[in-house]
Nucleic acid binder design. Structure first.
Lengths: 349, 349
DNA sequence: CTGAAAGCGCTTACAG
DNA sequence: CTGAAAGCGCTTACAG
């Protein structure tokens, strides 16, 4: 069934059918009703490719989940407690607004070609990038495509420095700095002085921010940061566990540890338990992200809540806004985090 | 950049460019190389919509995650430990084979229109349905579209009875019956006689199979099934917890419980612990699905492993096979499960 | 208000 | 082996 068939049945031309479908104002109510009736009766759906080819939107948003460090086989992306809720929220929001979501995973630098392809083949109206590491080359390439692009978790200063702010670009972050400060200051308020950190990927905006905030806060309160208390966990459970075991082998231990994500926090708590060290009595722990699991572990994990849902929602909205206008624009949004206290951080000592 | 531009630069016609792109045999090596060179140089990507419109495939697979019972707001689908790995595996497999994945979530019966639309608008070459409840009407509607369709977890006898087996349809299941039998018989071998079950959604193939297998196995071993030991958990943590609390309020308790999924198993273990009942010493528990979390809880959960990855892989492969041929076909695949013993099931009593 | 026609960027019989 | 042309199913200036 094509628009031509509908036209014949309704006794009008294809032009008019098209006008009705696209809600053109200059169609008399009577004609509109007549045409709509035929469309309904025959369950007609305009061919999306023909529409797109004729210049209409595709009503599809690309969602690109990037996981360059995850080389392991099998459940790679979604085993990560960060991506899954993201994907869900984006799909939900986009669906609710009448958009489809085209998903593609990026495991290697070559895979970025797939993103470019999706744009160049005009498959999508715009794209959302999540999980990207600092790599201004790629951002430049993608933004040069001049299609609506939203990047989650990226350093804006870098984009400004490179003058990439004149395409259809938006960056959406969370206030990880503030969240980390809140976590560290809470530990300090509880009386902790020897506070360690398990860092995330340092070529990641959130990884850097969380580390910097830790450093700044310690300095502000005139607490010394022991080198041995700074563990490189790379946002990975395994690496965090390994580092923690190394630390345990040495003499000195901190009295509190801030982990740059919950996966690592949970992982080091496990290691601590293996060694008979009680959390929070002997070592207090605070994580970051506030994943689902955080409230169901023993002890329940204190964590800084990432506004994942709000971020995804904002990302979709941004794409849609940008699709709607041809004006180039660069915008930025930074959503607040929140310290959620449970058991692992303990109380006043 | 269009094929016409490439043609000019290469000194050939659009026809030839197209032949090169589509790997037609009747192009001399020399011409092929010449054209490919120009394509490379200019990073030319054929417009996917024009190709599709001219009759080519879209190279896109639809993935529809159905969650009719999940009325709760927020993280609905991916909070469920069943969908997330599925989505990942499908995206991974499809991507690896050069296909994009178009995702859409279905929360209501009306949302099924979106699936039909995706097909009718020719957005996808074929679709995969996961999470569907028994609803032959919808299966009929979808299979009437006559596009490649793979359904995960569905009762084949129903499809055969309705003669829906002549379209481009495939059903992929796991051997839940066998898996459940193995779990129950293991408990029996450990000496349990009073075995309860927490059922899943009964309008779901896997929900029914797991329940039936439990019943059959108990009967086979001449063990009585107490009505009060059959809890309706509907695959939901909350409902399972509520039912478990009710059971605890009564006098009699089983010595072992089989839960139709891990979420419910974990949930009832929590409730048991709240009431000071030790698992597995006082009540042994076995779950189903073998989710990621199963190996990280206290006690570690024994569970029947669902071959999620293999199932998704098979689903994608089926779609691709069906896209490749115009012959109608109906096929079925049932992949084996595996009983994974950890701590919660206990040992010989 | 509305239709005929051109155009979107491909593919593929058809003819040579 | 290869090009000119028709066709895929829409949209949208253009003309009336």
């Amino acid at each position: 069934m094509r628009s031509e068939d509908i036209a014949k049945l309704a006794g009008v031309s294809r032009s008019t059918v098209s006008r009705v479908i696209n809600n053109y104002p200059n169609v008399p109510e009577e004609t509109r009703v007549k045409v709509l009736k035929v469309i309904e009766e025959h369950h007609y759906e305009p061919n999306s490719f023909a529409r797109a080819l004729a210049g209409k939107r595709t009503d599809t948003i690309g969602l690109f989940a990037i996981s360059l460090s995850g080389k392991n086989i099998g459940n790679r992306i979604y085993q990560n407690n960060y991506f899954a809720p993201f994907v869900e929220a984006v799909v939900d929001t986009a669906n609710a607004k009448g958009f489809y979501v085209l998903i593609h995973t990026v495991y290697s630098r070559e895979d970025f070609q797939k993103i470019k392809q999706a744009f160049m083949q005009k498959r999508i109206d715009g794209g959302i990038l999540v999980g990207i590491q600092e790599d201004i080359e790629i951002v430049r390439e993608l933004s040069d495509l001049n299609a609506p692009l939203v990047i989650i978790d990226y350093d804006i200063t870098e984009i400004l420095a490179e003058r990439l702010d004149k395409g259809h670009l938006a960056v959406i972050n969370s206030k990880d700095y503030d969240g980390t400060v809140a976590a560290i200051e809470h530990l300090i308020a509880l009386g902790h002085q020897e506070i360690g950190i398990v860092c995330g990927e340092q070529n990641t905006y959130s990884g850097k921010e969380r580390y910097t905030a830790y450093l700044d806060t310690m300095r502000k309160h005139e607490l010394t940061v022991k080198d041995s208390f700074v563990l490189n966990g790379h946002f990975s459970k395994q690496r965090a566990a390994t580092e923690m075991r190394k630390l345990l082998a040495s003499k000195e231990l901190p009295t509190a540890i801030f982990a740059s994500n919950d996966d690592m926090a949970l992982s080091i708590i496990e290691v601590l338990h293996e060694h008979g060290i009680r959390v929070p009595e002997q070592i207090a722990v605070i994580g970051f992200d506030d994943i689902d699991l955080a409230s169901r572990t023993v002890p329940k994990l204190s964590s800084v809540k990432l506004p994942l849902y709000e971020m995804s929602k904002a990302a979709v909205q941004k794409i849609i806004d940008m699709v709607g206008t041809s004006e180039p624009s660069f915008s930025t949004l930074s959503l607040p985090t929140e310290l959620v206290l449970r058991e692992s951080s303990g109380s006043k000592r």
